[in-house]
Design a protein around this nucleic acid. Structure first.
Lengths: 240, 240
DNA sequence: GCAATAGTGTCTTTTAGACACTATTTA
DNA sequence: TAAATAGTGTCTAAAAGACACTATTGC
């Protein structure tokens, strides 16, 4: 086996929806390199960890919540980044993971960070390392994946209303959806939403019903973004 | 930066369509570990290479053809695999790349292989390392990606007939498509196919027209697999 | 001529999108 | 009561799927 060894890190693109906007979890770096810069949370893979273990450990450390794949939220591998110049310390390969979580309480900064915060994804300035690229890939993955899966519900608490789910789509896609057609679409897609007996009172209008996630993971037919419906060709959703 | 270093390899899932079946390029290992076993072609990332450079270098070495992203065919990152026990030599992270190429001449074995061959993907026995997993992920990526992109044309030579393109879909999906509806669908999707003046003579029936790939990369609306159209929920195309 | 393959037209069914309308709450 | 939000029904347009039909070759 030839030499040329790498350090391997996992970096998280943790997305959530707060006040109708898509937010990402950032940390302010407390170490070199990029001391004081904002970055995606991350850490090195430990000797006996598989990549996904590192991802869930980091997610737990950064958000406090037990939001692995099993409970609420969603965690999946995005892609790996290994440009030889991406880290001034040497050869570091970073495996990006995408996490979709419900709106959580304020995060607590991890050990190597002086601060952490939720920031709207379209207001994020230049980040440390190649994290802008990672973030863009994560956001695009989320945008396209809620088209043909039920993953949008990962942004919601265990019980939620159809309107809450619609706000998720609208925030992630930055577009408005017709509430009536949306209602029909999601409630008639078998296995997407399971109604509970509970109605949410205290609001302004007719009390909405609470739903839980159903067993379905794929949406057929998919829910297409308007930008995808308008033109017939268009740009590439690149593969990596 | 904490220690715990990895060797980083790239492994290729090279797919093509030969005689109406989806094939993958395999090598017979000429070195330990897994000496004599069949495996996906691969190699280590060299000091100044980015991952995609390693991928295209390996693809060139194994297929002989210049089939990077630019020419014909397609190369994209799949996912990374780093189970601590996946390689008996120690900690090796493998970055999987998916390559879609036209039907090429017989491959020439690389340096660390005693043989290489195209094998139908559904007749591939247990492979070395975790390459069965990698292959399954690659095939599923190809199956789903030709639904909403024009990547199926990457399996074709620069000029091809509509029937050849349909054979690609049928081989990758293992299902039959209506030739007439398929024809209308692909020729009416803007930017997918560009007609040439050439008709292919010498065949049995009416001579078909040759087409080239157009500029479109995305298919809107997508071309859905029958399995996806039949039921409304169904199983998960998992994210990583 | 007939068989085979390429390609078009047309009808039916399904789905998306627009939007009128009903239902149930708070103020 | 009016205003607000939830949810249903219905019409239209677009697309998928079935399949009759025409076009052009080799035999």
């Amino acid at each position: 086996m030839r030499g040329n060894l790498f350090a391997v890190a996992v970096n998280l693109v943790v997305l959530t929806v707060r006040s109708h906007r898509l937010h990402v979890l950032l940390i302010e770096r407390g170490e070199q390199p990029f001391l004081g810069a904002w970055a995606l949370p991350g850490g090195f893979v430990q000797p006996d960890e598989d990549l996904v273990d590192t991802g869930s450990r980091l997610l737990r450390e950064e958000t406090g919540a037990e939001t692995g794949d099993a409970v609420v939220g969603h965690l999946e591998q995005l892609a790996s980044y290994a440009d030889p110049t991406r880290d001034p310390r040497g050869r570091v390969l970073s495996v990006g993971y995408l996490a979709l979580v419900p709106d959580l309480p304020e995060p607590t900064p991890g050990s190597d960070a002086t601060a952490s915060a939720w920031r709207p994804v379209d207001e994020v300035g230049p980040l440390a390392f190649d994290h802008d690229h990672l973030l863009a890939d994560g956001v695009e993955r989320a945008r396209s994946k809620i088209e043909y899966t039920t993953l949008a519900a990962s942004f919601c608490p265990p019980e939620f209303t159809v309107t809450e789910l619609r706000r998720v789509y609208e925030a992630v896609w930055r577009s408005e959806l017709d509430p009536r057609n949306f209602q029909r679409k999601v409630t008639s897609t078998d296995g997407f939403l399971v109604p509970t007996p509970t109605l949410v009172t205290g609001g302004r209008g007719r009390p909405p019903r609470l739903f839980r996630r159903g067993p379905a993971t794929a949406l057929h037919p998919p829910m297409l973004r308007e930008s995808h419906r308008v033109s017939r060709n268009g740009d590439a959703p690149d593969g990596d």
